[in-house]
């Protein structure tokens, strides 16, 4: 990795200023989250009294108790994990295949596909969501893990293709040319050469899309109405009504829903950052 920075920059003297500002900004970013976490451990009466203070004797896990029971959290966790896993696997496979074909094969068809898929990143979800129910129902996959996974995969593919194509274009041509000389077919080039190289960018795609799918509200709300298969965020939505007064339940459920993604992020953070740096900057 190219470390392009050395001490000869003219504005290295602003180290302290930058550090202070960055620290302040980090505090600004983390503060609401901290507030939410602390308040999730207070009973509703304490929250009503004062939102900003935290008395150790107010500490209680009652909100978590309630949330887990009422939302049937374990079931929701399982559903969300299954759907997310399915979607991510499909996205990685299909996305990298598409990007590989696009970047290696010179075909007008594939060029159009690439341009369309970039354009599709721009379509807001609202223009699609209202027709998903009749469509899925007519295909018979409404209310199934696979149906929702297909939708999420389709929504994630444009971004995945974009990232993968950007990455593959940075790989030298000689790789594929050497393989062709040896008589490899296109598929062999993919599996033998490109796949092992894609680890970092795959992590980037995983974290980006897993976060989106895990936290998504609309698609999961609309495509799954079977009570045993609903995902976590739609379950949580029952508390988040505009007239909700149960802040303790809202905050506790928010914390619980965010924990798995946070853990995944911290685990893979190094690779993720590397992938962002290498892949996302290119056109």
């Amino acid at each position: 990795m190219k470390r392009a920075r050395t001490k000869s920059l003219s504005w290295q003297n602003k180290h302290i200023g930058s550090r202070i500002l960055l620290l302040l900004f980090t505090i600004f970013v983390l503060f609401p989250i901290l507030l939410a976490v602390l308040n999730s451990f207070k009973p509703i009466a304490a929250i009503q009294r004062n939102f900003l203070t935290f008395d150790l004797k107010d500490f209680s896990l009652s909100a978590y108790d309630k949330v887990i029971t009422i939302l049937r959290f374990g079931e929701g966790l399982w559903n969300t994990t299954v759907v997310t896993l399915l979607s991510i696997v499909m996205t990685v496979l299909l996305g990298s295949l598409m990007a590989f074909a696009i970047s290696l094969v010179n075909s007008k068809f594939l060029r159009t596909v690439y341009m369309t898929s970039i354009l599709l990143i721009c379509i807001p979800i609202h223009a699609i969501i209202l027709q998903l129910v009749p469509l899925l129902k007519s295909m018979g996959i409404l209310n199934t893990y696979f149906g929702t996974a297909f939708v999420f995969t389709a929504l994630s593919l444009p971004v995945a293709v974009f990232l993968y194509t950007g990455f593959m274009r940075t790989l030298p041509r000689e790789l594929s040319e050497a393989a062709v000389v040896d008589g490899c077919s296109l598929w062999r080039i993919y599996t033998a050469i490109y796949m092992p190289l894609m680890k970092t960018i795959t992590v980037t795609v995983i974290i980006l899309r897993a976060t989106y799918i895990w936290n998504d509200l609309l698609v999961s709300l609309v495509t799954i109405s079977d009570a045993t298969k609903t995902m976590l965020v739609p379950r949580m939505y029952a508390f988040n009504s505009s007239t909700s007064t149960r802040w303790d339940l809202v905050l506790a459920s928010s914390v619980l829903v965010s924990l798995p993604v946070a853990a995944l992020y911290l685990f893979l953070q190094k690779f993720y950052m590397r992938g962002l740096v290498s892949g996302a900057v290119k056109e």
């Binding site: 696009i102 094969v105 075909s107 699609i128 209202l130 297909f150 593919l157």
Partner: peptide, 28 residues
């Protein structure tokens, strides 16, 4: 042949995108 292979590779992804993004959008 490469072009065909390439299109084939990209096909599953294209199908998903068409069915679950383009079709609902056009229906809309």
């Amino acid at each position: 042949i490469w072009k065909w292979n390439g299109a084939l590779m990209a096909l599953p992804g294209i199908v998903l995108i068409v069915v679950f993004i383009i079709v609902p959008f056009l229906m809309n």
